[in-house]
Amino acid sequence: MSDTPVSEMSFEQAMAELERVVGQLDSGDVALDESIRLYQRGAELKKRCSDKLAEAEEKVAAITLDEQGQPAGTQPLDPK
Protein backbone atom coordinates (compact mmCIF):
# COMPACT_ATOMS: atom_id res chain seq x y z
CA MET A 1 0.00 0.00 0.00
CA SER A 2 1.24 3.47 -0.86
CA ASP A 3 2.25 6.02 1.75
CA THR A 4 1.03 8.83 -0.52
CA PRO A 5 -1.89 10.72 1.02
CA VAL A 6 -5.08 10.00 -0.92
CA SER A 7 -5.68 13.74 -1.38
CA GLU A 8 -2.45 13.99 -3.39
CA MET A 9 -3.11 11.04 -5.70
CA SER A 10 -4.04 11.30 -9.35
CA PHE A 11 -7.09 9.41 -10.54
CA GLU A 12 -4.86 6.68 -11.98
CA GLN A 13 -2.86 6.28 -8.77
CA ALA A 14 -6.01 6.12 -6.63
CA MET A 15 -7.65 3.59 -8.95
CA ALA A 16 -4.58 1.34 -9.00
CA GLU A 17 -4.33 1.37 -5.23
CA LEU A 18 -8.07 0.79 -4.87
CA GLU A 19 -7.69 -2.30 -7.05
CA ARG A 20 -4.86 -3.55 -4.79
CA VAL A 21 -6.95 -2.92 -1.66
CA VAL A 22 -9.93 -4.78 -3.11
CA GLY A 23 -7.65 -7.67 -4.10
CA GLN A 24 -6.28 -7.92 -0.57
CA LEU A 25 -9.76 -7.83 0.95
CA ASP A 26 -11.06 -10.41 -1.53
CA SER A 27 -8.21 -12.77 -0.72
CA GLY A 28 -9.56 -13.29 2.79
CA ASP A 29 -6.00 -13.66 4.12
CA VAL A 30 -6.08 -10.41 6.08
CA ALA A 31 -6.56 -10.09 9.85
CA LEU A 32 -9.69 -8.29 11.05
CA ASP A 33 -7.87 -5.12 12.16
CA GLU A 34 -6.03 -4.93 8.83
CA SER A 35 -9.30 -5.55 6.97
CA ILE A 36 -10.89 -2.59 8.72
CA ARG A 37 -7.89 -0.38 7.90
CA LEU A 38 -7.96 -1.52 4.27
CA TYR A 39 -11.70 -0.92 4.05
CA GLN A 40 -11.28 2.63 5.35
CA ARG A 41 -8.45 3.28 2.89
CA GLY A 42 -10.58 1.85 0.09
CA ALA A 43 -13.46 4.19 0.98
CA GLU A 44 -11.09 7.18 0.81
CA LEU A 45 -9.70 6.00 -2.53
CA LYS A 46 -13.20 5.48 -3.96
CA LYS A 47 -14.17 9.01 -2.96
CA ARG A 48 -10.99 10.41 -4.55
CA CYS A 49 -11.75 8.60 -7.81
CA SER A 50 -15.37 9.82 -7.77
CA ASP A 51 -14.27 13.40 -7.09
CA LYS A 52 -11.68 13.33 -9.90
CA LEU A 53 -14.25 11.91 -12.34
CA ALA A 54 -16.74 14.64 -11.36
CA GLU A 55 -14.06 17.28 -12.02
CA ALA A 56 -13.37 15.79 -15.45
CA GLU A 57 -17.09 15.69 -16.28
CA GLU A 58 -17.43 19.36 -15.35
CA LYS A 59 -14.51 20.26 -17.61
CA VAL A 60 -15.97 18.30 -20.51
CA ALA A 61 -19.40 19.86 -19.97
CA ALA A 62 -17.82 23.32 -20.05
CA ILE A 63 -16.55 22.85 -23.62
CA THR A 64 -18.75 24.70 -26.06
CA LEU A 65 -19.30 23.56 -29.65
CA ASP A 66 -19.81 25.74 -32.71
CA GLU A 67 -22.61 25.17 -35.27
CA GLN A 68 -20.54 22.46 -37.01
CA GLY A 69 -20.12 20.57 -33.73
CA GLN A 70 -16.46 21.54 -33.37
CA PRO A 71 -14.98 22.75 -30.08
CA ALA A 72 -15.16 26.54 -30.11
CA GLY A 73 -13.64 27.23 -26.71
CA THR A 74 -14.44 26.69 -23.11
CA GLN A 75 -16.65 28.36 -20.60
CA PRO A 76 -15.51 28.98 -17.03
CA LEU A 77 -16.73 26.31 -14.65
CA ASP A 78 -17.87 28.91 -12.14
CA PRO A 79 -18.73 32.08 -14.09
CA LYS A 80 -18.90 35.15 -11.87
Score class of each variant (00 low, 15 high):
2 S>R: 15
2 S>D: 15
3 D>S: 14
4 T>P: 03
5 P>R: 04
5 P>E: 08
8 E>K: 09
9 M>W: 00
9 M>K: 00
10 S>Q: 09
10 S>D: 13
10 S>W: 07
11 F>V: 05
13 Q>P: 08
13 Q>V: 15
13 Q>L: 14
14 A>V: 02
15 M>H: 11
16 A>G: 02
16 A>L: 04
16 A>F: 03
17 E>A: 08
18 L>S: 09
18 L>C: 06
18 L>K: 08
20 R>F: 06
20 R>M: 12
21 V>E: 07
21 V>L: 08
25 L>M: 08
27 S>T: 12
27 S>K: 05
27 S>F: 06
29 D>N: 14
29 D>Q: 14
31 A>C: 07
31 A>F: 09
31 A>T: 11
31 A>M: 11
31 A>K: 08
31 A>N: 11
31 A>P: 10
32 L>R: 10
33 D>V: 09
34 E>M: 13
34 E>W: 05
35 S>R: 13
35 S>H: 06
36 I>E: 10
39 Y>I: 00
39 Y>T: 10
40 Q>Y: 00
41 R>S: 01
42 G>R: 01
42 G>S: 01
42 G>H: 00
43 A>H: 00
44 E>Q: 05
45 L>H: 00
46 K>L: 09
49 C>S: 10
49 C>E: 07
52 K>F: 06
53 L>Y: 09
54 A>V: 10
54 A>E: 15
55 E>V: 15
55 E>W: 08
55 E>G: 10
57 E>K: 08
58 E>C: 08
61 A>L: 07
62 A>T: 02
62 A>D: 01
64 T>N: 07
64 T>I: 11
65 L>Y: 13
65 L>K: 10
66 D>W: 05
68 Q>A: 15
68 Q>Y: 13
70 Q>H: 11
71 P>T: 09
72 A>H: 02
72 A>Y: 02
73 G>E: 04
73 G>N: 04
73 G>T: 04
80 K>T: 15
